[in-house]
Design a binder for these strands. Structure first.
Ligand code: FES
Ligand code: FES
Lengths: 144, 144
DNA sequence: TATAAATAGGATAAATTTATCCGAAATAAA
DNA sequence: TTTATTTCGGATAAATTTATCCTATTTATA
């Protein structure tokens, strides 16, 4: 469904959010440990999240990744997915036609569109805060 | 969403179905032309569909691929997807945890499960016949 | 200012997916 | 039985995704 890069990106953002509530910056190393991902690859993904303003990075000694507390509730899952996988998941044809077009639909268009739109709605209506709080409360997990 | 192989497989099955109504067998070459896919790769995918009893192949001169007319309405999209992409799309965790487990859920489990189940329902309740008839009537398209 | 700690980013490698090629096996018709 | 046609299947190649490594750059503190 999502690429590995995107899965790591979502989990990383959630973990950074949980730590940011405590005002703690985290390193790619710590993030990779916490979400069971390859460290260097995760660092690359973090760069993309920084470029797309999902997370903030602070270079140099005592640096790391963080998210402004006030932003956590405003960041949608859709932003993260879009930053890493692009927006094909929101708009591309399910059977790979050049574009999804009502006027030139593939055979599954009507049925696929419903599912795709529901996924889009879900991603646009889920914010980092609720996911991070679920982790903090122990109701959900980022690994194992 | 689906792999390229799966997209080709679905489109190929639909095209074979349309021809099978007329009692005509088709070759990988003709299929690839009709669905704009690489021919040799499409042939490989057809082998998988044969192995999983989605389509029937007839070797030798005057051979080709076909689907028994009576079977067309009983073949679900889900069988094709499962034959080619396996069943991860139906059951895998959206964030890549080893397994999707109610008792050890990832942060997006509840929300993701809904979308995944809707996709599953759609695939299990869409059969080749309706897709093939839409193509025959000109209401939908397999390429361009 | 010097040093240590940390992200940024380019180069490269490994793994997987996508795609091609070619000979073997099967089959209908001449 | 021979021939032409067609799928089967293994080997290989190209492209993309995933992953690693190393150096440059930035920055807080001593
Ligand atoms: S045209 Fe294929 S999903 Fe819309
Ligand atoms: S545990 Fe992640 S989707 Fe169920």
């Amino acid at each position: 469904m999502f690429s590995k890069a995107c899965e790591y990106g979502i989990k990383a953002a959630i973990f950074i959010a949980t730590k940011s509530y405590e005002g703690i910056r985290v390193s790619p190393k710590e993030i990779a440990m916490e979400i069971s991902s390859p460290q260097a690859f995760t660092a690359k993904i973090l760069q993309a999240l920084v470029k797309h303003d999902v997370v903030k990075s602070v270079k140099g000694a005592y640096g790391g990744f963080e998210i402004n507390k006030g932003d956590i509730s405003t960041i949608k899952l859709s932003q993260i997915v879009k930053a890493i996988d692009g927006d094909t998941i929101y708009s591309a044809c399910g059977l790979g036609l050049d574009k999804c077009d009502e006027n030139h639909p593939c055979p599954v268009h009507d049925k696929f569109k419903g599912v795709r739109d529901e996924l889009k709605f879900m991603l646009e209506n889920t914010n980092l805060e609720e996911l991070a709080l679920n982790i903090k409360s122990g109701a959900s997990f980022l690994k194992v």
